[in-house]
Amino acid sequence: MRFAPLAQAFSDVDLTSVRLVATDMDGTLTTEGKFTPALLQAFEQLTAAGIQVLLVTGRSAGWGSGLAHYLPIWGAIAENGGLFYAGEPRVETLLVPLVDTAQHRQRLAEMFQHLQTTFPNLRESDDNRFRVTDWTFDVQGLAIAELEQLERLCQSASWGFTYSTVQCHLKLRSQDKAAGLLDVLQQHFPDYTAAHIVTVGDSPNDESLFDAKRFPFSVGVANVLDYRDRLAHQPAYVTNAAAGEGFRELAQLLCRAGKREKLT
């Protein structure tokens, strides 16, 4: 599949209709693992243009709660669609069907231990203790073939599996970023259509955000090209720059479109 450059969106998409940017965080917003002052300025510029920013991250519930509170964004979906945190008022919403979270965590732990019988070097992620709906372990050192085998093992045990540039995730099979985002949209933005939303990501755990049937205006920052052969759903457009600079490229495009609308 040929990735269209982001600049082509000017002729393909009514950019002035966009009201919400739903974006991954690690590798998409971060630059060498950090938020830059320029990124925070981009958030402010989008808000001034009437465009809300919603994080859709694989990071933990603990991270999601803090990010939604401290960043100049509308809210955060954490754990790949597991929970939602509004910026104001500070409300936590469970987005997956769990009755007993403690029992669920125990089952996830048992599955992780089962995976360790095949992959004894798997290391639980540092933020796993702050999670509610999924279980994470480090992706570093795992080859593509090993990731594929881990996915097969999880599927055979009726679990879902995905991975990012940072972590591997054990989760419910129905749990993904798109499902969580659609739930939040239905609850908080029932009048929004696909034309109002752009989704952004960089890795396999963002794949559901690239599903054209649900989100026709999707953008991958340039480092998504590292995974082009592993994505069943691929972004409609790709930025020239990678990571946080790629997100800024998108933000500038949207803000310029808004200014052009005001002048006409």
Results as ranks from 00 to 15, higher is better:
residue 6 L to C: 11
residue 39 L to V: 13
residue 86 A to H: 09
residue 39 L to W: 10
residue 222 A to K: 08
residue 41 Q to E: 14
residue 143 A to Y: 06
residue 198 V to S: 04
residue 135 W to T: 00
residue 96 V to E: 00
residue 142 L to C: 05
residue 100 D to M: 06
residue 84 F to M: 03
residue 77 I to C: 00
residue 20 L to N: 09
residue 198 V to T: 15
residue 87 G to R: 13
residue 169 H to I: 05
residue 256 R to K: 06
residue 183 D to K: 11
residue 101 T to L: 10
residue 93 T to Y: 06
residue 105 R to E: 12
residue 78 A to P: 10
residue 190 P to S: 10
residue 255 C to Q: 00
residue 72 P to F: 07
residue 85 Y to P: 07
residue 196 H to K: 10
residue 52 Q to E: 15
residue 244 G to P: 01
residue 108 L to C: 11
residue 86 A to P: 09
residue 164 S to M: 01
residue 68 A to C: 02
residue 236 A to N: 01
residue 243 A to I: 09
residue 233 H to R: 01
residue 203 S to A: 14
residue 92 E to L: 13
residue 249 E to Q: 09
residue 142 L to A: 03
residue 96 V to Y: 03
residue 199 T to R: 01
residue 61 A to R: 04
residue 135 W to C: 10
residue 41 Q to C: 09
residue 182 L to E: 11
residue 12 D to N: 12
residue 11 S to V: 11
residue 235 P to L: 08
residue 50 G to W: 09
residue 264 T to W: 11
residue 133 T to Q: 00
residue 47 T to L: 12
residue 239 T to E: 08
residue 12 D to R: 12
residue 32 E to Q: 15
residue 8 Q to R: 15
residue 177 K to T: 11
residue 47 T to W: 07
residue 87 G to N: 13
residue 5 P to K: 14
residue 9 A to W: 04
residue 246 G to D: 00
residue 261 E to K: 14
residue 113 Q to G: 14
residue 190 P to E: 09
residue 40 L to Y: 12
residue 85 Y to Q: 04
residue 46 L to H: 05
residue 230 R to D: 00
residue 224 V to L: 04
residue 213 K to V: 09
residue 69 H to A: 13
residue 253 L to E: 05
residue 139 V to E: 11
residue 203 S to M: 05
residue 16 T to E: 12
residue 263 L to P: 02
residue 227 Y to E: 00
residue 35 F to H: 14
residue 91 V to F: 08
residue 95 L to D: 04
residue 24 D to R: 06
residue 119 F to H: 07
residue 47 T to F: 08
residue 106 Q to V: 12
residue 28 T to P: 04
residue 142 L to K: 02
residue 167 Q to W: 04
residue 217 F to D: 01
residue 177 K to Q: 07
residue 47 T to V: 08
residue 204 P to K: 07
residue 28 T to W: 09
residue 242 A to N: 01
residue 126 D to W: 11
residue 144 I to Q: 04
residue 163 Y to L: 06
residue 16 T to Y: 12
residue 150 L to H: 02
residue 130 F to C: 06
residue 20 L to K: 06
residue 33 G to D: 11
residue 34 K to T: 10
residue 256 R to W: 07
residue 102 A to E: 13
residue 27 G to F: 04
residue 165 T to W: 04
residue 59 R to W: 06
residue 41 Q to F: 08
residue 169 H to T: 07
residue 214 R to C: 06
residue 38 A to F: 05
residue 251 A to Y: 02
residue 183 D to S: 12
residue 203 S to T: 05
residue 145 A to Q: 13
residue 43 F to Y: 13
residue 19 R to V: 05
residue 28 T to D: 08
residue 7 A to H: 15
residue 182 L to D: 12
residue 28 T to E: 12
residue 129 R to K: 11
residue 59 R to D: 06
residue 204 P to A: 04
residue 67 L to V: 08
residue 13 V to N: 01
residue 106 Q to Y: 15
residue 35 F to A: 13
residue 105 R to Q: 15
residue 65 S to K: 13
residue 75 G to Y: 00
residue 3 F to D: 03
residue 217 F to I: 03
residue 163 Y to A: 05
residue 117 T to W: 03
residue 128 N to M: 05
residue 51 I to F: 02
residue 131 R to A: 02
residue 204 P to E: 02
residue 168 C to W: 02
residue 14 D to C: 13
residue 134 D to H: 07
residue 134 D to L: 08
residue 33 G to A: 12
residue 133 T to A: 04
residue 46 L to R: 03
residue 221 V to P: 00
residue 36 T to A: 12
residue 253 L to V: 06
residue 196 H to W: 07
residue 50 G to C: 08
residue 199 T to F: 03
